[in-house]
């Protein structure tokens, strides 16, 4: 299942919050969605969820608008605000209500509470939970319907080290099973260890969309050429693991988990023209973020992110 965000714009009271934002996230891809505070990340995710009406543009889930999905919770899971739950309800009741909306059996509630590590506190009131536990409960609701698309806004907020490791493994395993995951976060170093792609937003505009190097530098090469579709056909035919994206020095192309020699031979054997082939550039996400976001926001936001990880 694929998520497509097409040319979204949104303004509040004359202030442009999002301007022609567009990206897509394919099945099996974990996409980091990052940007300074106030850059429009949360607004974008709420537009995807149908909670905020865009002034222009559209969002498609597997080619369909979100509103027209039958039982959408079974297809797309959202974690948008861990504080957005009635404090007087118990953990189990909160998740049960979501399960009822999705027409899921009660057994699924127990299973997902166990999965997120809340099986021992089902009767605890939401208002008595720590931020980390509320995050886990919100994640439980997002995972409840075993969705094929997962949208998470700052899921690591409030999680301890063990919780963050658990989250990372969970998201990576979901991605490997074919779930399309969009995760917004300020924790760039953490994101870099498990996302495949990073879309950077600055003042309501997408300023970068790049593949993120997860493995060692030597494992990845970058290839581009005049006909990217032809290149991709070869990569698929050869069974080479690859991701589409930009390389700062070469433009759009593919990051491939093979040596340049192997890729070159494959392209040559099919007579597919390439104009850039070599080791993938080792650009860290943080460096890329620093290069493309506005300085007046960047200094404060990174300091803020390191301090408490909050999002505006």
């Amino acid at each position: 299942m694929k998520l497509e965000v097409e040319d979204i714009s949104k303004s509040y009271g004359g202030i442009q919050v999002l301007s022609h934002v567009g990206f897509s996230c394919d099945a099996g891809t974990i996409m980091g969605y990052i940007g300074p505070n106030g850059s429009g990340k949360s607004t974008t995710l709420k537009v995807i969820a149908g909670l905020v009406r865009p002034d222009a543009g559209r969002v498609l889930i597997d080619g369909q608008p979100y509103r027209s999905l039958e039982n959408p919770g079974r297809k797309v899971g959202f974690l948008l605000d861990p504080g957005a739950h009635h404090p007087g309800r118990s953990v189990r009741e909160t998740v049960t209500l979501a399960a009822m909306m999705m027409r899921l059996p009660r057994s699924r509630v127990d299973a997902v509470l166990t999965e997120v590590g809340l099986a021992s506190v089902p009767a605890r009131k939401v208002g008595a939970l720590s931020l980390g536990m509320r995050q886990r409960m919100s994640l439980a609701i997002a995972l409840l319907g075993e969705p094929e698309v997962l949208i998470l806004d700052e899921p690591a907020n409030g999680l301890d080290v063990e919780g963050m490791t658990w989250l990372k493994r969970l998201l990576r395993s979901l991605g490997d099973k074919g779930t399309a995951v969009v995760v917004s976060s300020h924790l760039l170093n953490e994101l870099e260890t498990y996302v495949d792609r990073a879309v950077i937003l600055d003042r309501g505009r997408v300023v970068s969309d790049q593949i993120v190097r997860r493995g060692a530098v030597s494992e990845w090469s970058f290839v581009s050429g005049p006909d990217l579709d032809e290149i991709e056909k070869v990569l698929v035919a050869q069974g080479f693991e690859h991701r589409r994206g930009d390389e700062p020095s070469a433009g759009p192309g593919f990051r491939v988990r093979r040596t340049a020699n192997e890729i070159g031979e494959a392209m040559w054997s099919r007579r597919v023209r390439v104009n850039h082939l070599g080791p993938a550039a080792a650009v860290t996400l943080e460096a890329r973020y620093g290069a493309v976001t506005s300085p007046q926001f960047r200094a404060g936001s990174i300091e803020h992110a390191i301090g408490d990880g909050e999002e505006t």
Partner: peptide
């Protein structure tokens, strides 16, 4: 009004966009 007051709409309107 309770869903708006406690922002529960963020859960329920996502699960039922109508």
């Amino acid at each position: 009004t309770s869903d708006w007051q406690h922002k529960d709409v963020m859960t329920f309107y996502v699960l039922q966009p109508r």
